[in-house]
């Protein structure tokens, strides 16, 4: 098998062995675990028929859930973009006690299970919680609570995409701007931020995509009231539980998946654009 592949135009010849075995295994495994199941999802959603698909996809509750998911995720991603940029800046540019600790802590949302984050945030922001007690309006069980959970899960993305670019940024550029008469703010906005833009946008898109799909932490801070603060993954679970056929759940999932792919495509285009324009992206 490996011999025949060596001769084919599919890949360049190489003396290194094992292509057939590893490639074959990887593709088979990928197909079994990821591709076939996802194909099943699309097949299922298609099998309900176009009219039914459209009816479920544009149903008021579905649209409300999608709007909640994508809307609150957008807010969370914007918050993360703003604070992520500040965090990345502070971590790369300043030296202060506890910097390494903060730097390490940024990855916490990658390592901490969402259920743990959810239960902690849910209790902290509850009306009688440590933080919730300070506010005279509800946070848990509202859109604010969901947004806080989504901020948590997406927090590291912008920081971790911007940080390496900021570290590689030549200090001479800032000095050059200063010798040319640019004040510090003009230097930041005209010289430092433009090259960071692709990395910032990439981090933003990643945080956004992550927040849109989030389920674990949200269920602890919001029960999901239909039409009000129910997120799309919650609706999928409910549709799966209440309907004997899997059609409705599959349709909503397919719509979400399509939107997520659109985001992924945007990320790739952004990175390609960034590489073209600035030589490197985040």
């Amino acid at each position: 098998m490996a011999r025949t592949l060596t001769q084919s135009r599919f890949r360049k010849p190489s003396v290194i062995p094992g292509f057939g075995l590893t490639f074959g295994f990887a593709v088979t495994y990928l197909s079994l675990i990821v591709l076939i199941p996802i194909a099943a999802l699309i097949l299922k959603s298609a099998s309900v028929g176009w009219d039914e698909f459209w009816r479920i996809a544009t149903d008021g509750r579905t649209l409300a859930a999608l709007r909640t998911s994508f809307g609150l995720s957008l807010i969370a991603a914007l918050v993360n973009m703003f604070f992520g940029l500040i965090l990345a800046w502070v971590l790369t540019r300043y030296r202060f006690p506890g910097r390494r600790l903060i730097d390490a802590m940024v990855d916490l949302p990658f390592a901490l299970p969402t259920a743990v984050a959810g239960i902690a945030l849910g209790s902290l922001y509850a009306v009688n919680g440590w933080i919730g007690g300070f506010f005279d309006f509800r946070i848990t069980y509202t859109a604010i609570g969901i947004t806080i959970a989504l901020i948590f899960v997406g927090l590291p993305f912008v920081v971790r995409t911007v940080q390496p670019v900021l570290e590689d940024l030549d200090k001479e550029l800032e000095e050059a701007a200063a010798t040319l008469g640019a004040g510090r703010w003009k230097t930041i906005f005209r010289v430092i931020l433009p090259p960071l833009l692709p990395a910032v946008l990439t981090g933003f898109a990643l945080a956004y995509a992550r927040a849109v799909g989030e389920y674990g932490s949200v269920v602890f801070v919001s029960q999901g009231i239909p039409y009000r603060n129910e997120i799309a993954p919650q609706l999928i679970v409910i549709k799966l539980e209440e309907s004997a056929s899997y059609g409705p759940a599959a349709v909503i999932a397919t719509v979400m998946l399509a939107l997520a792919f659109l985001l992924l495509l945007c990320i790739n285009l952004l990175q390609a654009w960034g590489r073209r324009r600035f030589g490197s992206a985040g």
Binding site: A176, A177, R190, P195, G279
Partner: peptide, 24 residues
């Protein structure tokens, strides 16, 4: 000041690079 590695602003055109000091 002319820097050893030029320190040109990569995201600006040549004209914008040269005009930078006037624009700011």
């Amino acid at each position: 000041f002319v820097f050893q590695h030029y320190a040109l602003f990569k995201h600006l055109t040549i004209a914008d690079n040269i005009g930078f000091g006037l624009r700011v």
